Amino acid sequence: MPHVSLQVEARTTPLASASVRALYEDPFWAARYGIQRARRFGDEDAVFHVRYLVQALDAARPAILEDYARWLRTLLVTRGMCSVHLDQHFEGLARALQAEGFGPDSLPHSYVQSARQALRYKEGPAHAVASDAAAIISAVVRRTEGPLPAGSRPRLEQEVRLQLSYLSDALALGRDDLWSAHLQWYAGFWPQRGLSPLTLPHLLDALRAALEDGPPEALTLLARMPDSWEETHS
């Protein structure tokens, strides 16, 4: 029987394609990069994910894929993405592997899960924020879901998770400018999230309240909302 790395390598194209199929349903990609550019680079990245998985399997070293995930995250967050986006890539790859017969008990699937775990920050304010993410998300949802239509909670939870990810990445890299640039762009994109009447400033206010006892660095970043938002912040 061929080594599992060869089995995965032989399925590189269908695995890569399937791993990102659902990704582009998020309007973020078309709005942020243009759908053609997003698909071109996203599809290329998906192939690289599989290739690094094959390398890791061939060497019996999950650290190869873990190191790749951390390196790629550092690159992507400077281009307008966040850790959640990369995790979604790997989550899609895990689903694609399972569809090809490499289930949760298989080495390929476990290696991908290890790469996802590697994206978790292990120290500093980013770790403090990420490690308490479930409680923070729950607190923000309680504060903001009231005026939203029934059934909005899953999308709202995902939105809070996304903002926490952008915040954690900026904290981990010590790059306040990444958070500021994210807010400037995201303010214009916000209506496409379909969470009206909730506004982005109100969501961030709730996030700041939930992080009241959190790292001071996080509160400092959350206090830096663009002046142009004041007219919508009521």
Rank of each mutant, 00 (worst) to 15 (best):
I137D: 03
A96S: 13
E159I: 00
H127L: 00
A139N: 03
G80Y: 06
R32Y: 02
Q55C: 12
R161E: 12
Q88K: 13
R224I: 03
R155Q: 11
L86R: 03
E9N: 10
A69S: 09
R79T: 04
L171P: 05
S106H: 04
I35C: 01
R32I: 00
A69W: 08
Q117E: 14
V50A: 10
H202M: 02
S19H: 09
Q98H: 02
G80D: 08
A210L: 08
L57A: 05
G174Y: 05
L15C: 06
Q192P: 00
P154K: 12
L173M: 14
F41P: 00
H109E: 07
L162R: 13
W179S: 04
G214F: 06
S17V: 12
L162P: 00
S152M: 08
H202S: 07
A46G: 09
Q113H: 11
H127P: 00
Y121R: 13
Q88E: 14
P191Q: 11
E157I: 09
S114C: 14
Q7R: 14
P62D: 12
A16N: 10
A60Y: 04
P154G: 08
Q117T: 08
A30D: 15
A38L: 12
R79K: 15
R51L: 15
P226W: 04
H89F: 15
V112S: 03
Q184S: 13
G146T: 11
M1Q: 08
A96Q: 05
I136G: 00
L119K: 06
P197E: 07
Q117P: 00
C82K: 11
E123C: 00
Q55K: 14
V160W: 07
